[in-house]
Design a protein around this nucleic acid. Sequence first.
DNA 1: AGACGTACCTGACCGC
DNA 2: TGCGGTCAGGTACGTC
Length: 276
Amino acid sequence: MPELPEVETVRRGLAPYLEGHVIERVTIDRHDLRRPIPFDLGQRLTQRRIERLDRRGKLMIWHLDSADAVLIHLGMSGRMAVSSAAPAQKHDHVRLGLDSGDHVVFNDPRRFGFFDLVSAEALVSDPLLSTMGPEPLDDMFTASYMLTALQGRTAPIKNILLDQHVVAGLGNIYVCESLFKAGIAPDRSGNTLSNAEIQRLIPAIQAVLTRAITVGGSTLRDHRKPDGETGYFQIEFSVYDREGQPCPNHPTNPAHKILRTVQSGRSTYYCPGCQT
DNA sequence: AGACGTACCTGACCGC
DNA sequence: TGCGGTCAGGTACGTC
């Protein structure tokens, strides 16, 4: 699930319950996530105040009143939830009790995500964070940056946009949707994109992400806002998971039926009429 | 270096 | 109802 809009939705949902509050109790269910939970995480988190919630790509970062920061990746199936008091659920790996009486839970059935605690020095050299490409909604993410990034890249543009080193936060859903909006076929080699196409791609990505954040992300199966509500962007998908359905731009034209292909083992949805 | 296949893990869904 | 196969939003690693 969780791509940039979902992580941003979770961050915004959690912030009012967490920022300024003190962690009083830490319960860990199991340590063997994609990154092992540090054995001393409970000790280092207890009595720490959460100063600020941040996000970088698909990573959520909690800045504390200590030299540590919490790094959270939701993987494929991760969720965060806040409640006044709810019974522990299956796959609740980390549970925090706050001074407000609220409980914050990290739940991840597939354990592709992680809940890590790193020092300030380790944060800047973190293998994910230190090599991550620009934030797509930042001024740094421009057509000229992308032109350089695509030089010499023969891989399909779909795969390149999934590469977090090129641009942060895009996953399968938002890459498919952005390429549709930009009118670019997903199997095009990166280095064959024209200037005009790159000029369309940047604002297309930004528009798709911005709209998705506005409506709380996409809920296919797992994604929930911290209050348990679903996101709503899946209602607005143009191509993703819409194989055989009409393209929204040309609903009556049979040459504009959404197709599904597989690229590097992952589903790609696109309109063969609109995307060339 | 870049591209590609595979592995990690659990749950949902489909056909039989 | 149960079983096996397939698929899923992501990243890391080995190989060429």
